[in-house]
């Protein structure tokens, strides 16, 4: 039970791993914008190429990345089908009974599939695979700190996430222990209808919640004992530092977006609406 990795972080020493998490959050956001700037076959090709380049630089095995796409296969298929069958255009490719498939529909489906895949791959490379959840939380706190002026509970939110992350392994371990204890008393979690199996979880959830509340109470006291009094006047051990490479990455992505806009203007072939 000791090797639960947090999230999907993939430890490695790539250039992308070494970037400042705040910049990576901005880069991920800009990269999403880029993927929505693409309108024709050339820009989508460039987008796909940029994603491949990112994968190469990040040093994350493509096999692992493909795994991250598994949960969205259904959404992917769904949007592809919808676009294929519901886009009407001028060049009819195939028609049978009430089904009409146009060239425009095929292209739209293809483009959107590429966009979704690149979106997932791009953001997971910038955020989840190369950034620890703690660095990510700190980056979000720092990026959202201007909202503190509006009295948004930015620090509290970041603290909540940090503590949640901290307790994932503890509570996972506890769940396993409770499950083992209930199994030893003859509980059965693997057979029967869904309804029956869900009911079998109650004897796990109740003690888990009781213990989680007790832990929360003790943790709150312990934090108070260590002078916690909210985010006001708090300093940090590790202050994020931006380096030239962070700015270079940012510039590259902005340039990439500008390039995509140019491609759209002088676009060739089918243009997506």
């Amino acid at each position: 039970m000791n090797n639960i990795s947090f999230g999907q972080y993939y430890p490695a020493n790539s250039l992308i791993h070494s970037l400042d998490a705040r910049f990576k959050v901005i880069c991920a956001f800009l990269y999403i914008v880029c993927s929505f700037l693409c309108k024709n076959i050339l820009s989508f090709a460039a987008l796909l190429a940029s994603a491949a380049l990112l994968v190469a630089i990040s040093g994350i095995p493509p096999k692992i990345l493909l795994k991250s796409l598994r949960p969205i296969i259904f959404i992917l298929l769904f949007t592809v089908v919808i676009n294929m069958f519901w886009t009407s255009g001028e060049n009819l490719v195939f028609s049978w009974w009430k089904i009409r498939i146009y060239y425009e529909g095929i292209m739209n489906a293809l483009f959107i599939a590429v966009r979704i895949v690149v979106l997932i791959v791009g953001t997971s490379i910038f955020l989840t695979y190369t950034t620890t959840p703690i660095a990510l939380t700190d980056a979000l706190e720092s990026l959202l700190s201007p909202l503190k002026v509006l009295r948004a509970p930015v620090h509290e939110f970041a603290m909540m996430i940090t503590i949640a992350l901290r307790f994932i392994p503890t509570l996972t371990e506890e769940t396993n222990r409770i499950m083992a204890a209930q199994k030893a008393r003859g509980a059965d979690f693997t057979t029967g209808s869904i309804f029956k199996r869900a009911r079998a979880l109650i004897p796990i959830l109740v003690p888990l919640f009781v213990s989680a509340f007790r832990r929360a109470d003790e943790l709150a006291t312990a934090m108070e004992c260590r002078c916690y009094h909210g985010g006001e006047g708090r300093t940090r051990l590790n202050i994020p530092h931006s380096r030239p490479r962070d700015y270079v990455m940012l510039l590259l992505i902005v340039a990439f977006g500008a390039g995509l806009i140019l491609i759209n203007i002088y676009g060739i072939g089918y243009t997506m609406k």
Binding site: R215, E218, L219, A222, M223
Partner: peptide, 10 residues
């Protein structure tokens, strides 16, 4: 309980 007084993940 050491688990209930450690706040950070590092």
């Amino acid at each position: 309980n050491p688990d209930n007084q450690i706040v950070a993940t590092i």
